[in-house]
């Protein structure tokens, strides 16, 4: 262990020396101009010095612990673009499996100016602002139906957003006086969810997908979107999905209005839902006006 640490420190020092000139140059630039993140063209991982590239990773190889296994791990890290690779820890998990903790300096750089980001465009309001917004812009309660669909039995996500008590100190949407919430719970077939949404004339459908093994969530989410299209209510409802492996980008690709990932709070969803429902109503009204005029 000590040897590895010592080696890594030595390498780090050496790396720092090499990069010193560049770093000074860049930090001077930074002082002058302070570029936006989106203007940065050569970003490297950061350990304790700009552009040192240090990162840590851990993985298991299905190989017996020994020098051969270690060299294999170093080569694998090399193929990932790591240099000065140090295996700081190696452990037999089973006679044929070895676990590694590795440090190395990643040589890859990233050009941020070429990255396009898709995010749900919401100005986040709080509990009071959301309720006031709905009262003013919509003038009636927003009806929301939520469920964990398909075979998914994990209600942790949907409950965090909907339940009275909410999550991380924020009330769930059930507590909002201007939301009328129906939480259908777990393992709800898509057909039942759609039927309920039609019955209640829902404004918002919230789906939670926690189980993502073998991409089962993709099939399930696609099916729901298709069903709503088939019932011709897709345009009427704001369709939202949440879950640990859900991104807004993925959700939009699947035909949803928004996707919320880990760390989402009830007010994030509430804000989005309120604004979108208001938009739909406004759009419908103008459509109605056009057809009558």
């Amino acid at each position: 262990m000590m040897n590895h640490d010592a080696r890594i420190n030595a390498q780090a020092a050496e790396g720092r020396m090499k990069k010193k000139r560049e770093v000074i140059k860049e930090s001077r630039c930074a002082a002058k101009l302070a570029p936006q993140d989106s203007q940065l063209k050569k970003i490297m991982a950061y350990g304790d010095t700009l552009n040192d590239g240090w990162m840590q990773l851990s993985f298991t190889l299905p190989v017996t612990k020994g020098e051969l296994a270690k060299q294999a791990a170093i080569q694998l890290a090399g193929k990932m673009g790591l240099e000065d690779v140090g295996v700081v820890f190696m452990q037999e998990l089973d006679p044929r499996f070895t676990f590694f903790i590795i440090y190395g300096r990643c040589q890859h750089t990233i050009d941020l100016s070429t990255i396009k980001v898709v995010e749900a465009q919401v100005e986040r309001m709080d509990y009071y602002q959301i309720n006031a917004y709905i009262e003013e812009k919509i003038g009636r309660k927003i009806i929301a139906v939520g469920a964990c669909t398909g075979s998914d039995a994990h209600t942790v996500g949907i409950d965090a957003i909907l339940n009275m008590k909410g999550y991380a100190g924020e009330y769930g949407l059930e507590r909002y006086p201007w939301f009328e919430v129906y939480n259908m719970g777990s393992q709800v077939p898509n057909e039942e969810l759609v039927a309920k949404a039609i019955e209640l004339n829902a404004d918002v459908i919230l789906v939670s997908q926690i189980v993502t093994q073998k991409n089962i969530h993709i099939d399930n989410l696609t099916e729901l979107a298709d069903l709503l299209e088939a019932e011709e209510i897709r345009d009427k409802v704001v369709l939202i999905v949440g879950g640990p492996r859900i991104s807004h980008k993925l959700a939009v690709e699947l035909g949803y209005d928004a996707g919320f990932g880990p760390g989402t709070l009830p007010a994030d969803v509430g804000s989005f839902a309120a604004v979108e429902v208001a938009k739909r109503i406004a759009a419908n009204d103008s459509e109605a006006n056009q057809s009558t005029s």
Binding site: F59, T60, Q91, L93, D94, F97, F99, Q213, P244, P262
Partner: peptide, 12 residues
């Protein structure tokens, strides 16, 4: 927990 089912080294 909250990410995926445990890998062999997570259990160790």
């Amino acid at each position: 927990e909250a990410i995926h089912t445990p890998f062999m080294h997570d259990r160790w």
